[in-house]
Nucleic acid binder design. Structure first.
Lengths: 207, 207, 207, 207
DNA sequence: AATGAATGAGCCTTCATTCAT
DNA sequence: AATGAATGAAGGCTCATTCAT
């Protein structure tokens, strides 16, 4: 990252910086208002650019939205993978990943407000245009999780149930928990709750 | 319900019937298109009423939306409560409730498409106008769940962890599982998966 | 026409009247400003309706434009055909048609301002969506002209040249002449000029 | 032209060359897209200059458009005049001019696509800003034509009708014919048609 | 209650033009 | 003269809501 910032010509650095500024502004507005209620006008103001400028960076509102999500999903995938890799043994990996996911939430709680809810009518045809990429990325992450569960099943650490269901359950617990945190007036982190939740899950899947 | 239908004067019976027809049409359109993409025009057509008529029954699109959800949540609450009551012992109650929730999904899969996702930015301020009531109702249902878990903790059937977290986990598993079913092209019910999921959960919370 | 006006239910009569009012307003604005510079806003104002109302009658600005032209082309075709039918003998028919076309111009000079020029970029793909119908209609009219010329060639009244070229020439003279009239500050009709023009043409194609 | 290129200082020569490059690019884009759909952006790309540079040479899009037309009209005028001068006798001059005009079309068919159609509503007030010059130039060419016809009328070669109408007719036939060629998928030149058309015209105006 | 034509505010998007470098 | 990122006004279109019948 630092390399990029320093080696690229000034013009390109500025381009990337502006692009990033717009993405940040968009993320803020999307998470406050939701996809539909957010207006390009407001995003532009927040980013301190004119509306037209947004369109130099992103073709449509929808693609700007997709890019915001993709940007965060890349981070999520990256860090989750790191967490899975770093630990030794399936149980420890899952434990590590769980904590990493919660850490990530605390870095940017606003994002999860619309990550889990997707664009309006995520299922509707209207949006199939840009959702596939996001879903794909998510599935890739789930695949990685499944591998770890499969590994745990093989070595007898986890119960011989479907590794897909395990991954799904893992995500379900996280999703519901993070949603509740997002909804709190002044969210504060509670270590004990996290440990208990993880314990429920691991107890559930372990032999 | 039957009582209502038969004892009320014809005028009022018709009023209720029309109201219900509109709600059903709205549910269908909302679940197909999502909140934003759904138009009052289309709902009116589906209900075989004029647009103006919809406004005799519901003040705004948002309130119609809320009423659709509230209608289904009443059923959900009712049936879930029945399931919790019918069984004996905390574990059995949870098991029964889990199955009931899945039964309910299969009665009306479309509904869950937008129940979990809520309107655009269900959590956002923009929608706080009609969400409170829904959240309240949901909390009431969660409370009932928590009681059961608390009971199980007291009698040593469940582990001595937070009953709130247990309820949350229960919902998380269900939500993620039902979402996946909704997303399937031609959703089909798989008994074994359901049993495994329940087993993971109960294993997780049980001593 | 009268039948239509009197036998249709009031609602439908109003619908047609409003539709016609919008078409007239649109024609006026299109002929003053041209297709692109004309705005739906201004057309709406001129028609004394709200913008939204225009879209109840016409799907897009382009289709409104096409309908304006189609409406006038129907009249043009109808009256030209009448003129061709009424006279006896090819020469007389053409003579009659020529006069009819000029009469039609004087009934509505504004229309021809954009009829001959077509929408911006009439040739561009962007407009191929709605032009075909107009072009078809025009070709049908040209076909009728060609028949008359062919008839004249067969009976030795016209020279044995291509009837297509004759029809084209006929249209060329009219177009250029009407354009010049449109461009005049205060157009006034000059009988002698018309006769001379017709004479040039008939002399050109006659034996 | 060559003189200009060689005698002027390098700076000025470059200026003129760049100006010409922009004009050519503009002509290409205008003829492909039409005035409105053409964008300064695309013209700039085609000319391999930055948008801003275009504005160093031409104040507005409209004036660039006008200059493109003026450039071609100068050639048209020049060559038509040569054609009129070269031949001997009114009839022969017109014949020569007719052929010259068609030659010119084949040198640059694209240009005529928008020459005859003008910008959006060439006749409309919106565009009167830059049209006058074009119209003037065109009138000058028509004047020259009229002189030839007047000459022919005086010497008894042409019929004693208005020379203005004759010039108009001449233009009408050309316009319609060239338009039809422009519209063809793969335009090909047909000598016989041209001869017939010319014959119709000359027959029409000759004694 | 029922109708549905009419309303008009609001939003995404385009693109000619400017200006700091 | 050359650049091209930034501007922002303007326009087509949608749709929740109203109101006269």
């Amino acid at each position: 990252m630092l390399d990029v910032e320093t080696t690229l010509p000034r013009k390109e650095r500025e381009f990337l910086r502006h692009r990033r500024e717009i993405l940040m502004a968009a993320e803020a507005v999307f998470s406050e208002k939701g996809y539909i209620s957010a207006t390009m006008e407001e995003i532009a103001q927040r980013a301190e650019f004119a509306v037209g400028t947004l369109y130099k960076f992103f073709d449509t509102k929808a693609s700007l939205y997709a890019e915001v999500i993709l940007m965060r999903m890349s981070e999520l995938e990256e860090e989750s993978n790191r967490a899975l890799e770093e630990a030794v043994g399936p149980g420890e990996r899952i434990r590590n990943c769980f904590r990493s996911r919660i850490d990530q939430f605390w870095k940017n709680p606003g994002f999860f407000r619309f990550f889990y809810h997707g664009p309006v009518g995520a299922i509707s045809e209207a949006n199939t245009g840009f959702l596939p990429e996001i879903r794909e990325r998510y599935e890739r992450y789930l695949d990685r999780l499944r591998e770890v569960f499969a590994e745990g099943i093989r070595n007898g650490e986890f119960r011989p149930l479907g590794e897909g269901l395990m991954a799904l359950s893992f995500e379900g617990l996280l999703q519901v928990y993070l949603e509740r945190l997002s909804g709190q007036e002044s969210p504060d982190r509670r270590q004990q709750e996290e440990d208990e939740l993880l314990s429920i899950f691991l107890n559930g899947v372990s032999v």
